[in-house]
């Protein structure tokens, strides 16, 4: 018998008493009763609690904000589907960092990514109650590796993509896409349970919320 068959037979035997399948009570909150303003305010609060840098910016000023944050940087990576207008100031103005575009045609290597200062991505959705930003590998967010290796991650999040509770985000996401849920910069509490921000993942997380 194969290991699979063996294990399946063991399980069937273990369940010889045919335990009941309970009906799952779903009395917990599955939708929000907060206004958009409240969700925004809550997300800002939660992200700051995690020591992320948060900027609430009108959508039309996205490019200016990005340019301001990246002044002094040498080079960045963006996914190929990042909206061009977010980058207009970076491409037009002098003294701005070089932009590497990661695309299916040209995938940056680990070494190349490690040499860059920052990564700029969009986000799929965000949960205000937990301060969580979800990336799902869409063209404006890119491959998982690009938002991991550079030491600084700048996320541009549309305020309309903010939900309050996790079940709302789960409903918006597609399970089989490769996902990364991010709640603040990388952190550890492994030494005396004292939280320290910045270990292996990006040590700086900037979130620009576009209103």
């Amino acid at each position: 018998m194969s290991a699979r068959e063996d294990i399946m037979a063991r399980i069937a035997s273990a369940l010889h008493d045919a335990p009941e399948t309970p009906v799952v009570p779903r009395e917990y909150r599955r939708s929000s009763n907060m206004s958009a303003e409240q969700r925004l305010e809550q997300l800002v609060d939660r992200l700051q609690d995690y020591k992320a840098n948060v900027f609430v910016t009108p959508a039309e000023e996205a490019s200016a904000k990005l340019a301001e944050l990246l002044a002094g940087s040498t080079s960045i990576v963006v996914p190929h589907g990042l909206p061009q207008d977010w980058l207009s100031k970076l491409t037009d103005d002098a003294g701005m960092p070089a932009i590497e575009v990661d695309s299916p045609e040209r995938r940056l290597t680990v070494a190349e990514l490690d040499a860059l200062d920052a990564v700029v991505t969009a986000a799929a959705t965000a949960v205000s109650e937990t301060g969580t930003i979800m990336l799902d590998g869409s063209a404006d967010q890119g491959r998982r590796i690009i938002s991991l290796v550079p030491d600084r991650h700048i996320v541009l999040l549309r305020a309309s993509d903010i939900v309050e509770v996790l079940p709302e985000a789960i409903a918006r996401l597609e399970a089989t896409r490769p996902q990364t849920w991010i709640s603040g910069p990388s952190a550890t509490s492994d030494i005396e349970l004292e939280r320290v921000e910045g270990v292996h993942g990006p040590r700086t997380l900037d979130v620009i919320i576009l209103t």
Binding site: R143, I145, P178
Partner: peptide, 21 residues
């Protein structure tokens, strides 16, 4: 577990994604 509202990172994958991971 850690007493946080959410842990910093959660990764989800389903089999193989071409070009990613």
């Amino acid at each position: 577990s850690t007493g946080e509202r959410m842990n910093p990172y959660t990764s989800l994958w389903t089999g193989v994604t071409e070009g990613d991971g």
